[in-house]
Design a protein around this nucleic acid. Structure first.
Length: 284
DNA sequence: CACTTGACCTGTCCGC
DNA sequence: TGCGGACAGGTCAAGT
């Protein structure tokens, strides 16, 4: 599921709800999902929630941090005590928790429960010391955050040029080029920039890099505004879907008319991933 | 070295 | 209704 906007939506939602709560209990239903010593965080209080690329971090007051990656199908769903029905944590859209995809359950000091659900079991949670976070190689090697002020097309261009012979859509999904862009927003950003996703990086001009940077920022921001993209799995921290895909230009719209020119949207595979574009509008 | 494919898992959908 | 195959928001490792 989740790319930058979806993780950001969860981060913002959890921020107002679990800061200051302490972790009373952790139930690990799927051992492979949880790395590190869960006892190290019991009794500690959540003091800060952050996001880097598609990784969510929860810093605790005992010097440890919980890192979460939702990969393809992960969810973080919080159920407050007043939403329990007949003793069971229950939400309107996601039903009774835990369900058959629940891998880890956190219980907080106010009796709220946070469910890590993950149908495909690719996602993970790990416990490490806050001081070690900056030494994690998967965080160190990440490219710039596209929604931070410092992000500009020059940096994007410089990073993309390390993959000159790759199709542009594949290159912008590389987390070392720009952080947080995945399969949905790579297609959407190429559409906004009017660039065919198959075009090799080496063929792009400065004007193309500029519009690409703009397209990345625009698609990510728009998605956050709509609460993210829900194809099959994504829900926010209280179990609600996001509606970006209702307004998407190309992703998931194979055969349907382009919203700008009415040409049917094409679907191809690039690096094994479904890729959508308008063959008429995206002519670079 | 740069790039593609397969693996990791579970589930759904579509064609025969 | 059943069965096989393709496909699904991500990332690694292995192979060419």
């Amino acid at each position: 599921m989740p790319e930058l906007p979806e993780v950001e939506v969860i981060k913002r939602g959890l921020d107002s709800k679990i800061i200051g709560l302490s972790i009373q209990q952790i139930d690990i239903l799927n051992p492979k999902t949880f790395q590190g010593d869960s006892k190290a965080v019991l009794g500690s209080k959540i003091i800060k929630i952050w996001r880097r690329a598609k990784v969510l971090g929860m810093d605790l007051d005992n010097g440890f941090s919980l890192l979460v990656h939702l990969k393809m199908s992960g969810q973080l769903v919080l159920v407050a005590k007043d939403r329990f029905i007949g003793g069971h944590p229950t939400l309107d859209m996601t039903g009774v928790m835990p369900n058959k995809s629940t891998r880890v359950i956190f219980e907080f000091s106010n009796e709220a429960k946070l469910f890590f659900n993950d149908q495909r079991k690719f996602g993970w949670i790990k416990v490490i010391k806050i001081l070690e976070v900056k030494n994690q190689k998967f965080l160190q090697s990440l490219g710039p955050e596209p929604l931070e002020r410092g992000f500009g097309w020059e940096a994007l261009k410089a990073n993309l040029l390390r993959h000159k012979s790759q199709p542009i859509k594949v290159a912008i999904m590389d987390q070392e080029v720009v952080a947080g862009v995945g399969n949905i927003y790579a297609s959407e950003a190429c559409f906004l920039a009017k660039i065919n996703p198959k075009t090799k990086v080496s063929a792009l001009t400065d004007a193309n890099f500029q519009s690409l940077a703009k397209g990345i920022i625009e698609s990510l921001n728009k998605s956050i505004d709509y609460g993210g993209s829900s194809k099959a799995h994504f829900v926010n921290e209280v179990g609600e879907k996001g509606y970006y895909l209702v307004f998407a230009n190309v992703y998931g719209r194979a055969g349907q008319p382009c919203l700008k020119c009415h040409t049917p949207i094409s679907k191809i595979a690039l690096a094994g991933r479904g890729t959508y574009f308008c063959p008429h509008c995206q002519n670079v």
